[in-house]
Structures are given as C-alpha cells and as structure tokens.
C-alpha cells in the first residue's frame, strides 16, 4: 500500500481528501441537522453553470464556480423568503437552470472541452496544486465563519422561529449558512463532481450523528470519518482501477449501512 504514496498525483489526491473532509464534516453537520440536503443538492448542481462559464471565459472553472454557486445559494434563499413559491419547487428550478446554463456555456466554447467529465463525476487523481490552494483557502473561510457564528447556526438549525424571537437576524444567518454550503460544494467538486457532492455533504455527518449528541464532537467525528472513508475509496479506486468519485460514494454508502446496522 505504501508504494502508492510515491506518486505525486497520489500524494496530491490524499491531501485533497483531507481538505474535502474538513468542508464536508463541518458544513455537512449543518446540512444534516438543519435538513437542507435537497437545497445543498440544488446548489451543487447549479454550480455546474459556473464550471461552464469558466470554460467559456477561459478561466479556471473552479474559480468561476465560486461566485456562481454563491449566487445560486442566495437565489434559493431569497426565493424561499420573498416569493410565494414552495422551497422544493424553487430548488428544482435553480437546480436545472444551473445545469442548463453550464451546458450552453460549454456549447458556446470553441473547440474541444477537456476534462469536462471530471467536474461532473469527480477526478481526485488529477487535482492540480492550484486547486488544492483554492480548497485550502475555502476550508479556512468555512472554519472561521463557523467559529464566529456557531451560536446562531445552532439556534437556527434547532428552532428557526425561536431564533427570531430572541432577536437573531435569522434570515441573514440562513443565507450565510447556504453560502457556506456553496463554498463547500466548490471544495468538493474536483473530488466527487457536482452530481455526487451531496454524498460527501450528508453521509459522514449522518454516520457520526448516530454516535454523539454534541455538535462539536459531531463535527470532529464527521471530519475524521469523511477523511478516512474518502481515502479508503481513493485507495480502492486505485487498486481496482475504478472511477474515484463513484468509488468514494460507494464506500461512504457502504459505511453508512454498516454503522446503522451496528448501532441497533
């Protein structure tokens, strides 16, 4: 097993796995306890519009995905609060709009579009160093924001109405939480792709939630479990020569099944 660490691309892949597990453990905890899994799925698919825009403009698709997924997160939140459209309808619309825009942008891009598939299904083995730096910065932003707003995020997740009553600016805090989801989607895209992002945002936290009832321990455990399972998936995909993103998701799902069985 040691020899795989001799390859530089494998070293980078494992660093990516660690960076990913920080985002999915911390933000995934809120995604699971606030029950915004479907919203997060919408944001991650809408982010594909940003990937397409990046190709079209000739800039790094990951960088283009940052403003795009932030705007779609704010859009879902704003529609939810201001317009009389049910939340899941709003998500459905933005979900497909983002994907459609991405496809149109790719259509409009002259010539062949390389590694488009890696953004759809992930490609942890080809993460360039520059993307690792982007992921690191986004991770630090996520940690800092959660540290500053942990009281508000917890109160909002537990009882949104009551958080308003005690005087929290709950609507703004909710928007901020959706922005964190958007940033973690960007962190995760390179590893599992927009289509599979939601697995990493939910499964590690869902496993950990069965073993602790303290939110800080829940976050820490989710980070550790996410890191271990992503690395295990990465290793298996190397050994059996399988698609890395899909293998990671299979490992996560299998682990969830086992943990659920063990708990009862």
């Amino acid at each position: 097993m040691i020899e795989i660490f001799q390859y530089e691309f494998m070293q980078r892949a494992f660093i990516a796995a660690v960076l990913v597990s920080v985002a999915c453990g911390i933000v995934g905890t809120y995604v699971v306890i606030k029950r915004i899994v479907f919203i997060s799925g919408g944001i991650s698919h809408a982010a594909f519009g940003g990937i397409g825009l990046g190709y079209f403009l000739g800039i790094n698709p990951i960088l283009a995905a940052i403003p795009f997924s932030l705007i779609s997160a704010l859009g879902i939140g704003a529609i939810n609060q201001r317009v009389k459209v049910s939340e899941d309808t709003a998500i459905g619309i933005l979900w497909s709009l983002g994907m459609a825009l991405g496809i149109i942008f790719v259509n409009l891009t002259p010539g062949y579009v390389p590694d488009l598939f890696s953004y759809l299904f992930g490609s942890i083995l080809t993460v360039p160093i520059s993307d690792l730096y982007i992921m690191l910065v986004l991770d630090l932003i996520i940690i800092g924001t959660v540290f500053l707003f942990q009281r508000e995020f917890l109160a909002l997740s537990f009882d949104e109405e009551f958080s308003k009553v005690v005087g929290m600016p709950s609507e703004l805090i909710y928007m901020l939480l959706l922005c964190l989801v958007a940033l973690s989607v960007v962190v995760l895209i390179k590893v599992v792709g927009v289509i599979l992002v939601i697995a990493l945002l939910t499964i590690p936290a869902a496993i950990s939630k069965q073993y602790t009832s303290n939110i800080r321990k829940l976050m820490a455990l989710s980070v550790i479990i996410g890191g271990l399972l992503t690395s295990a998936g990465l290793w298996l995909s190397y050994v059996f020569n399988l698609a890395s993103g899909a293998t990671i998701v299979l490992v996560l799902t299998f682990a969830f099944g086992i943990s659920y069985y063990l708990r009862d």
Binding site: I33, R151, F158, F162, S163, K209, T212, I215
Partner: peptide, 20 residues
C-alpha cells in the same frame, strides 16, 4: 417545537439559546 428527533443539543444549551 418541531425539532429533529436526535438533534445534537443538551438541556443546558437549549435553555442558553433563550439568551442572545
């Protein structure tokens, strides 16, 4: 209050959330 059945919060922190 409709909250998640196994929401990770204890009694003390629940009451503390009444202060802001």
């Amino acid at each position: 209050v409709s909250f998640d059945h196994d929401f990770p919060i204890n009694v003390f922190d629940t009451v503390l959330s009444g202060i802001y």
